[in-house]
Nucleic acid binder design. Structure first.
Lengths: 107, 107
DNA sequence: TAAATACGCAACTTTTTGGTTGCTTAACTA
DNA sequence: TAGTTAAGCAACCAAAAAGTTGCGTATTTA
């Protein structure tokens, strides 16, 4: 397909995918494909496709158990976006914000 | 089209568009459509379309002068992405990074 | 004023994307 | 073991996106 950062940006560019990702982040336990699709209007196959896209972006990790596939959110790849933003953040102002960005860049 | 944040994410999800935006950010002066298209493989019309998308996301501001349309980058909308990331950043670790994020959230 | 330049608009093509349905297979459960 | 449940795969469809070409129109410049 395309490079990592593009996969990542495309994964979160779709509102439904952002919603699914968010649901997984705030879920107290991993959710199966069926459990996810119960929460959304679209079909189970539609969810499967979105999960695949999220998985390829590294934002979802799957834990297969028997016939079920439990999906976990992984927020770490979002750090790449944070890094991407860092460069541009120097242009939007130079107050405390930049201290925050500076600290981020050092961790 | 769609909501603001989706427009923004979609605008930067395309690699060509990210490149155009980057070129405008680092440019020492505003660039006309033709000047931009000279730097890229795609046609002038292709550039015009990308600029329109960036403009609708607020990432480009146009200053028309005579027959030319000078494009300026505007990084401010990217703060919205930063804000979006903030919520998820609490999950990826809790060291200095969070101090940075915390400071960002207060400005 | 004639030629050249900068650009918009519209139509069109191709590819990608978001979504569907139908069918199969594997794994539980009664 | 028979029925049900979870999900993958493949084919398909419609709409959106990325890009093109052709043409018209304003604005410069020679």
């Amino acid at each position: 397909m395309q490079d990592k950062i593009t996969k990542l940006f495309k994964a979160i560019a779709d509102p439904t995918r952002r919603d699914i990702f968010h649901a997984l982040v705030i879920a107290t336990s991993a959710l199966s494909i069926t459990q996810i699709s119960n929460q959304f209007e679209i079909s189970r196959q539609g969810v499967t496709k979105h999960i695949k896209t999220l998985q390829e972006a590294g934002l979802v990790v799957i834990d297969a158990q028997g016939r079920e596939r439990f999906c976990n959110a992984n927020t770490k790849p979002l750090q790449e976006i944070n890094k991407w933003l860092q460069f541009y953040s120097q242009f939007w102002d130079n107050s405390l914000q930049n201290l925050g960005n500076y600290l981020n860049s050092k961790t």
